[in-house]
Design a protein around this nucleic acid. Structure first.
Length: 812
DNA sequence: GGTGTCTGCCC
DNA sequence: ATTCTGC
DNA sequence: GCAGAATGGGCAGACACC
């Protein structure tokens, strides 16, 4: 559910026929049973949660059928070996857990609850996650996670890796492309099947809670299982998820659903909530990745696994002796925090260069923290997390932040980030290439053409042994090399790419070099890395027009003077690029607070090294659409909305926005928007358009034209300024339909709310003609390449383009 | 076999 | 991607 | 300033359904 809740998702709008396929269950009328029925019993995990089951929405179901009201579900087939403990028997009762929400210095792993080498029940994680939801304090969150991992490290180290995956909403390293292939549809069918509730009841629960895990928890609290299930184990749940990910081919959806149902049937109490959140890959407990790494480091400091305990040196910078732990109870300001800091820095450094929990968990079990970077090293073929840029809003701001430190300003192309690895294999000298996306997915196959280019680099330079390059892959015109749009790049095939069937020609714009011939060069300043990149890898324009080109990003250095930089920015604005990336060339020092005008302002070091996983202040991005007056602004009317999820569940979010079509006197939907609203604004908005009030209806009362169907319609009455990066040709939008394409409308990329236009009435909102003009004006820039090429675009040359002054309505 | 739905992943 | 929020 | 959360448009591919 973390992805989309609008028209693309059913959003529980289409009641499902009650699913009775897959694993056969008997749905049993609850009235047929009395309290003597064997019950799994409410688990005693999650004592910290304050949520209580609320049957309201179930009771309010209009004339519920018996079977959908309160039911029991009895599995009539074997529950599947995956969920069964394989080695030793595990007691059916959930263990009594002590509180995890205490300082690690006073927390003790209770050996009565946790005898060594017993597999750990999933209920420990559910308990931990449930405890996490009671706080927003970073310190407390870290304490809870640290204590949880200490239990695992002491009692059953083999559970560590699956626990890390379950806590981090992942199944495998990103570059291993393991996917659950589960989403809204399958999971809700499974919940429906297991709970026996109608889809209408689930829909009401979902609207109320805004969380599928909460829906499952409440739905299942109505169900009492007849057969007590052995407890879910951390290892077992993880294995089940892997099973789900492996279901492929015809019948896969049913197979996945059946595996989900087995998990749901076996889950008790809070386990249900977090299991379902895990299936949605959105745990929503305030801990994603950094917190988990930090907690793992701290857990290792305090409770190293037995396998390495004997080999710990007394003077280790990482491990806390029993004496130290005892001392910290009386004097918190001792060296424990120093050890935490050391361990965190070490573990994070290792992870960002080798993001693989499997390798890290194994190395920790075998040798602990000491020497970890040697056992989990930087490795060509394994992606490192990329450096990211911080947004800025003007060149002035950039000069304020970097002062007179030299920098390079580079074109920021609108393509796809690609980290290219290439190396020669030792035995036969064959060349291997891997290409990774910004989020470290392996896209070698999709980027076959860039893979060939990389191989070519090795063939043309026999001294080349290995490389890792940071690049942007951009669609280009094969004839003249003109830049093409992101949308066109997206048309590339992603699987089974045949080199002789290339439809989208690309240029690989290289902008950084991280590794060369066995040498890690992250620690070199950008000037040195760039110089190596330029000298070792000159541009390549192959003769065959379908082949990928290699080029360097267009750039200018600040040493050329501010006028040259200003001019370069103007060039970027006029070309089909997103803007500039400004990068510090040499490490230096900058003001802590550029607006601070004191005599002796504080300064902080600013390294020009490659900083994996950092949104560094040494890389500043300046995008056209951040700059007032340059981006595409539309004045749109809020015409509908959806119930939000998670922290926004009490508000309308996203909001559907419309253009005003003066010819029809009607509003036409363009896009949804969920960004740019403050909580205060949401609150006021949700009150103004209160569900059921005269301003808000389930029916399309005000006759607006919508592509999809919002959950509610708003009475059109106000105008908002909405900023976007680009106008896109949309397969779903009905806005400006027929003006640019007969079959497709127009929409907005990266829409966000700027402000209410108090001065405008809805008749003064932007029109379809205006939007179409904006699109054409955008197409006119940066060469002649057409952004969309499937023949249904209308000839723009006959239409008038709006004057530049008409484009920006943001201020007048 | 064609169309629609769902999912994951680019930005 | 963008943006907001709490710590 | 970091970390986390909510969710935008839009594409290909896999599968479900008819």
């Amino acid at each position: 559910m973390h992805k989309d809740s609008g028209s693309k998702q059913p959003h529980l709008q289409h009641p499902q026929k009650s699913a009775r396929h897959g694993l056969a269950y008997e749905v049993i009328d609850v009235d047929a049973f009395d309290d003597t029925v064997v019950e799994a019993g409410p688990s005693n995990v999650g004592t910290a949660t304050t949520r209580q089951p609320d049957y309201d929405s179930v009771k309010r179901t209009p004339s519920p059928s018996k079977s959908e009201r309160i039911t029991k579900t009895r599995p009539v087939r074997d529950e599947g070996a995956v969920l069964r403990p394989k080695i030793e028997s595990v007691p059916l009762e959930t263990p009594k857990y002590g509180p995890l929400i205490v300082s690690p210095s006073v927390f003790e792993v209770d050996s009565r609850v946790w005898p060594p080498n017993k597999t750990i029940p999933y209920s420990l994680l559910a308990h931990a996650l449930s405890t996490l939801t009671t706080t927003r304090s970073r310190i407390t969150i870290l304490n809870i996670l640290t204590n949880t991992l200490r239990v695992i490290l002491q009692a059953h180290p083999p559970s560590l890796l699956p626990a890390l995956y379950l806590l981090s909403n992942t199944l495998a390293p990103a570059y291993d492309s393991v996917e659950l292939g589960l989403g809204y549809s399958v999971i809700l069918k499974a919940i429906q099947h297991v709970s026996g509730l109608s889809s209408g009841a689930l829909k009401r629960l979902y609207t109320k809670t805004g969380d599928p895990g909460d829906v499952a928890f409440e739905a299942k609290s109505n169900v009492r299982t007849l057969v007590p299930h052995p407890p879910l184990l951390i290892t077992g749940v993880y294995e089940s998820l892997v099973q789900i990910s492996k279901a492929k081919g015809p019948g896969a959806a049913k197979q996945k659903q059946s595996l989900v149902e087995k998990l749901l049937v076996a889950a008790k109490g809070e386990e249900v909530r977090f299991l379902v959140r895990t299936l949605f890959q959105n745990l929503r407990v305030g801990a994603v990745r950094t917190s988990i790494l930090t907690a793992l480091a701290r857990a290792m400091v305090m409770t190293p696994p037995a396998s390495i305990r004997d080999s710990i040196a007394a003077d280790s910078p990482y491990y806390a002796s029993d004496d130290l732990v005892a001392a910290v109870k009386h004097n918190p300001l001792n060296r424990l925090s120093e050890k935490f800091t050391n361990a965190e820095r070490l573990l994070k450094q290792v992870y960002v260069q080798h993001p693989n929990y499997g390798h890290i968990a194994k190395a920790l079990a075998e040798g602990g923290l000491e020497g970890l970077p040697d056992r989990v090293p930087f490795t060509v073929g394994i992606p490192l997390l990329p450096t990211l840029g911080s947004p800025t809003r003007s060149l002035d701001e950039i000069y304020d932040r970097l002062e007179d430190l030299p920098f390079a300003a580079e074109f920021k192309y609108d393509g796809q980030r690609a980290q290219i690895h290439g190396w020669k294999n030792a035995p036969d000298g064959s060349v291997a290439v891997k290409i990774f996306s910004r989020h470290l997915e392996d896209m070698t196959e999709k980027a076959r053409i860039s893979t060939s280019l990389t191989s070519y680099l090795f063939f043309s330079d026999s001294n080349l042994e290995s490389l890792i390059m940071d690049t942007e892959i951009v669609a280009i015109d094969p004839g003249n090399g003109d830049l093409r749009t992101f949308q066109e790049l997206s048309n590339r095939a992603r699987k089974d790419v045949q080199v002789n069937e290339i439809k989208v020609v690309v240029c690989v714009f290289a902008f950084d070099l991280l590794y060369l011939n066995g040498q890690v060069i992250l620690q070199e300043p950008f000037r040195a890395r760039r110089s190596l990149l330029r000298s070792k890898f000159p541009p390549v324009i192959p003769e065959w027009r379908g082949a990928a080109r290699l080029d360097h990003v267009k750039s200018v250095d600040s040493e050329a003077g501010r006028d040259a930089v200003e001019e370069f920015w103007q060039e970027a604005v006029e070309s089909r690029v997103e803007g500039l990336m400004v990068k510090l060339l040499d490490s230096g020092q900058v003001l802590t607070d550029p607006s601070d005008k004191k005599d002796r302002p504080r300064r902080k070091p600013l390294p020009a090294t490659y900083e994996p996983d950092k949104r560094t202040a040494a890389w500043l991005k300046l995008k056209k659409d951040y700059v007032t007056g340059l981006g595409d602004s539309l004045d749109l009317v809020p015409i509908g909305g959806w119930h939000g999820n998670g922290r926004k569940h009490q508000w309308w979010s996203p909001i559907l926005l419309g253009l005003y079509n003066p010819a029809l006197g009607k509003l036409v939907a363009v896009c949804k928007c969920m960004s740019g609203f403050s909580d205060v604004f949401y609150k006021a908005l949700t009150e103004k358009y209160a569900d059921g009030s005269e301003n808000c209806s389930r029916q399309n009362l005000w006759d607006v034209e919508t592509g999809g169907t919002p959950q509610v319609y708003f009475k059109p009455q106000e105008v908002w300024e909405i900023r976007g990066a680009d106008v896109t040709v949309s397969p779903v939008s009905v806005a400006a339909l027929g003006l640019v394409s007969d079959s497709r409308g127009l929409s907005l990329r990266f829409p966000r709310f700027m402000k209410v236009r108090e001065d405008k009435s809805i008749e003064q909102a932007s029109t379809p003609d205006f939007l179409a003009g904006m699109y054409r004006s955008q197409q006119g820039k940066g060469g002649k390449g057409e952004g969309v090429d499937d023949g249904d675009l209308l000839d723009a040359s006959m239409e008038s383009e709006p004057e530049e002054s008409e484009i920006d309505l943001s201020d007048s």
